[in-house]
Amino acid sequence: MTEYKLVVVGAGGVGKSALTIQLIQNHFVDEYDPTIEDSYRKQVVIDGETCLLDILDTAGQEEYSAMRDQYMRTGEGFLCVFAINNTKSFEDIHHYREQIKRVKDSEDVPMVLVGNKCDLPSRTVDTKQAQDLARSYGIPFIETSAKTRQGVDDAFYTLVREIRKHKEKMSKDGKKKKKKSKTKCVIM
């Protein structure tokens, strides 16, 4: 069974824990209790493949930012979460993405942009803004509501699919490099 290491990042209060708990335990946590770091595991079937999701729910508070490099190193894919009623959390996505790329030393890291709290009427981040940002990053965008469960499975499952595509691409690139290195030079 394939294991996928997913990391949920975003500013404090955007609903990272609520999304994760909704996926794992099928219930909505409405009281806000700032996370330092929590880890969850769940076995699911995605596109006919049974897999184990190892999900790291991270601290959004700035005082825990020193811990970010460590979990970013171990993560295979990242859910970059903002709240649709919090423009600052949307603007912060850029910083999370840049930090992930720096730590992973790669421009090509599996990510999904997630606009959470889409059940709320007080939207300050337009869907088109988020779609445009995701398009500019070359990553999928999904709106979710941890409260109603809308888009929750889709967000995590899409990230797994992005990781699969990335692994497939990397193995193809690896095979191309191996083929090239088999060419021999004969000096007579």
Rank of each mutant, 00 (worst) to 15 (best):
L53G: 09
S145P: 03
P121M: 11
K165A: 11
E62L: 06
I36F: 05
D38G: 00
M67Y: 08
T20M: 04
G60Q: 15
K128P: 06
K117E: 13
D105C: 09
H166N: 11
F78L: 07
T35A: 15
D119F: 14
I187L: 10
D69E: 14
V9C: 02
P34M: 14
Y4W: 07
E31M: 09
V14A: 09
E168D: 06
I139M: 06
I187H: 07
D30C: 06
D57A: 00
D132E: 07
I93T: 12
F28R: 01
L133W: 07
Y32G: 02
A18D: 03
G13L: 05
K172V: 13
D105Q: 12
K175F: 11
F156D: 02
L133P: 04
Y157N: 09
D54V: 01
Q150V: 08
T127M: 06
G60V: 15
I163E: 01
L56W: 09
E76I: 15
R68N: 01
S39I: 02
V9D: 02
D54G: 01
V9R: 14
V29T: 04
Y64W: 08
G75S: 15
S106E: 07
V7M: 10
D154M: 06
Q150R: 07
L159P: 02
K42H: 03
A59Q: 02
V81K: 01
P121G: 13
Y71A: 15
V29G: 02
D69K: 04
Y4H: 09
C118D: 10
K88P: 15
T124H: 09
G75F: 04
N86S: 08
G48D: 07
S145F: 12
D119V: 11
T35Q: 15
D153I: 09
A146V: 14
G75Y: 10
V81W: 01
T50F: 03
K42E: 02
P121T: 12
P34T: 15
K177M: 12
P110V: 03
T87V: 09
T124Y: 08
T124R: 07
V9Y: 06
V109F: 13
M72E: 07
V8K: 02
K180S: 09
I142L: 04
R68W: 02
N26G: 11
C80R: 01
A146Y: 14
V7H: 05
V186Y: 14
D69F: 01
I139V: 07
M72I: 11
Q131T: 08
Y137E: 04
T127C: 08
L113V: 12
L79M: 08
M170F: 14
K169S: 13
A130S: 06
V103P: 06
T50E: 10
H27T: 09
Y71V: 14
K172I: 10
K128I: 07
C118R: 08
L113N: 01
S39C: 12
I142C: 13
V103D: 09
K117T: 14
E162L: 08
T183H: 02
K184M: 02
F90H: 03
G138H: 04
T58N: 04
E107G: 10
A18C: 03
T158D: 06
E62T: 05
D132C: 05
K128D: 06
H95C: 09
E162C: 04
D108C: 09
E49P: 10
K172D: 10
C185R: 10
R73F: 10
G151A: 07
I24N: 04
D33C: 01
R97L: 15
V103L: 14
R73Y: 10
L113W: 13
H166G: 11
R102K: 15
P121C: 09
I139F: 03
C185S: 12
H166L: 08
I100L: 10
Q99E: 14
R73E: 10
T58R: 01
S181P: 14
S145M: 13
C80I: 14
T50M: 09
S106I: 09
T158F: 12
K178D: 10
Q150H: 02
S145T: 13
T124S: 11
V29S: 03
C51Q: 07
E49W: 05
G115E: 03
C51G: 04
D54S: 03
Q70T: 12
C118P: 10
Y32A: 05
M67T: 03
T20I: 03
E37M: 15
A11M: 12
V45N: 10
F82P: 03
L159E: 04
K117G: 11
Y4F: 07
S89V: 03
Q129E: 11
D126L: 07
D54A: 00
F82M: 12
H166Q: 12
E76L: 15
M67I: 12
G75C: 15
D108Q: 07
I55W: 15
S39L: 01
K177F: 09
M111Q: 01
Y137S: 08
P140H: 04
T2S: 07
L6S: 03
Q99F: 14
L133H: 09
S39T: 09
V8M: 06
G48Q: 08
Y4K: 15
E76W: 14
G10H: 04
G151Q: 13
M111H: 02
G60W: 13
S89P: 04
D119C: 13
R97P: 01
K178H: 09
V7F: 00
S17W: 00
E168W: 03
P110T: 04
A134C: 10
D69Y: 03
F156S: 11
S65Y: 12
T74S: 11
S106T: 10
A130V: 08
Y4Q: 04
D105V: 03
T127H: 06
G10V: 05
T50G: 08
E31K: 08
L56A: 12
N116Q: 14
F90Q: 12
R41Y: 00
Q129C: 12
E98W: 00
V109Q: 03
K180N: 12
K184L: 04
E49T: 09
K175T: 12
G75A: 15
L53D: 01
R68Q: 03
F90L: 10
V109D: 01
K179N: 07
V45Y: 03
R41E: 00
V186N: 13
V14E: 14
K101H: 10
D38Y: 02
N86H: 02
V8P: 02
G174W: 02
A11F: 08
P121I: 12
E63N: 04
D33A: 01
D108T: 05
E37K: 01
Y137Q: 03
I139T: 09
G77T: 03
G12L: 01
C80Y: 04
K182L: 08
R68T: 03
L159D: 04
N86Q: 04
L6M: 12
I55E: 00
V186T: 13
I36Q: 00
D108K: 14
D38T: 00
T124K: 09
T58W: 06
V14L: 14
S145I: 06
N116M: 15
R123P: 08
V152A: 09
K88L: 12
A66C: 13
G13I: 01
H27P: 00
I55M: 13
S39E: 04
G115F: 14
D154T: 07
K104G: 08
P110F: 02
P110L: 03
I139L: 14
R73S: 12
Y71L: 14
D30N: 04
K5H: 01
G48V: 04
L23E: 14
G10M: 14
I21R: 08
T124F: 08
V81N: 04
V14Y: 14
M72P: 01
F156K: 15
D47F: 02
I46V: 10
I187R: 04
C80T: 03
V109M: 07
K180M: 05
Y137M: 10
F78G: 00
Q150A: 11
I139S: 05
R161Q: 13
T50Q: 14
Q129P: 12
G115M: 10
G77Y: 01
C51I: 10
V160M: 09
D132Q: 06
I139K: 04
V114K: 00
T127R: 06
L159Q: 01
L120D: 14
A83N: 15
A59G: 01
R68M: 01
Q43K: 12
K104P: 04
K104T: 15
G77H: 02
D47W: 01
M111S: 00
K165P: 04
A18I: 04
L23R: 15
L79G: 00
R164G: 09
T158N: 05
G151W: 10
D38W: 01
E168Y: 14
G138M: 04
V114H: 00
